[in-house]
């Protein structure tokens, strides 16, 4: 029984990190008033870039940077098409997601990739703690970034001038514009952060979780990460809780099938994170105060 709990905890932390990294980036972007459907594409590009980079250079560390760069490229396109050239951000998001699914699938079949897997690193004393020890302190080392990244995001969004400007752009772009804040620039920058975080998340997925890239391996994880931000009510703590909860739902579905628990049929367990995200949106998300200018296009010349 304890072993079962350990397995579920361990895999929910592992899968939760995928959502967490991407959701933290999307949190910044949504505070600036943008929604990036292309987060899915950024995540997938990151997974592919990570695997390709690690395979070409032979070093997982460089692979991670390649993944972050791949996510950044997609976010660069998203940001400049929708917040410089005023194309609708959702349509751009759909287009970029489709493009990255197509490109990664095509290149994956054309290029041979042998990426290594990131090593497991158990922190000496802490990993001995019963139940939570292995889950938290015996991860593949990229997973430990999850202890640092939330503080970093918190610091830049809530403790810097830049962060204040980003939040003001998300609340009232016209007022921000009048007071001299470059609205579209801040939005673009926040999307770059989302892209790099999603790229990191993708690299974590392909280099640490599975150890190999496979076709369309993100499979809606980016969408669930967006849902985690909405679920968290556009607060940092809520976003973290949301992503870990969806990770738990994902892990629960997988582990229960492995353990052999078959009261709930497999297909239902497989759709757990999506179902939970939907239920979460229906119940909790609506109580929150969202950035007032969320999903609102801003044209400084209007």
């Amino acid at each position: 029984m304890i072993e079962d709990i350990e397995i579920i905890l361990e895999s929910s932390i592992r899968l939760g990190h995928i959502f967490l990294f991407a959701a933290l980036g999307e949190y910044v972007a949504e505070r600036a008033g943008t929604i990036n459907i292309s987060l899915e594409g950024m995540l997938l590009a990151g997974a592919f870039g990570g695997a390709l980079g690690a395979s070409e250079t032979g070093s997982p560390v460089l692979g991670i940077f390649a993944g972050i760069a791949a996510g950044f490229i997609i976010s660069y396109l998203q940001a400049n098409l929708s917040h410089r050239l005023n194309i609708d951000q959702f349509v751009v998001g759909i287009a970029l997601t489709v493009l990255s699914i197509g490109l990664t699938t095509f290149l994956f079949l054309e290029i041979k990739i042998y990426s290594g897997r990131i090593h497991e690193f158990a922190i000496p004393v802490l990993s001995e703690i019963p139940i939570i020890g292995t889950a938290l302190f015996a991860q593949r080392w990229l997973g430990y970034v999850a202890f640092v990244l939330p503080f970093f995001i918190w610091a830049i969004v809530h403790r810097t001038r830049w962060g204040l400007e980003v939040r003001s752009v998300g609340e009232d772009p016209s007022a921000a514009n009048v007071s001299g804040i470059p609205v579209l620039k801040r939005r673009r920058q926040s999307i770059y952060i989302a892209g790099m975080c999603a790229g990191l998340s993708g690299a974590y997925l392909s280099l640490a979780v599975t150890g190999a890239f496979s076709q369309n391996m993100s499979a809606g994880k980016g969408v669930v990460a967006i849902a985690a931000v909405l679920f968290g009510g556009w607060t940092l703590f809520g976003t973290i809780c949301g992503s870990l909860l969806f990770g738990f739902a994902d892990a629960l579905g997988l582990s229960l099938q492995i353990i052999g628990f078959n009261v709930i049929p497999g297909p239902v367990l497989d759709s757990m994170p999506y179902l939970l995200a939907l239920i979460g949106l229906l119940t909790i998300a609506n109580m929150a105060k969202k950035p007032a200018a969320l999903a609102e296009n801003f044209d400084p010349s209007d």
Binding site: I35, I37, F90, G220, V223, V224, I226, A227, L230, Y274, A277, L278, L281, L282, T283, A285, N286, A295
Partner: peptide, 12 residues
């Protein structure tokens, strides 16, 4: 509950 149609249809 004013759940964004885009997100909910995608999840579905």
């Amino acid at each position: 509950r004013r759940v964004d149609v885009m997100i909910s249809t995608l999840l579905l």
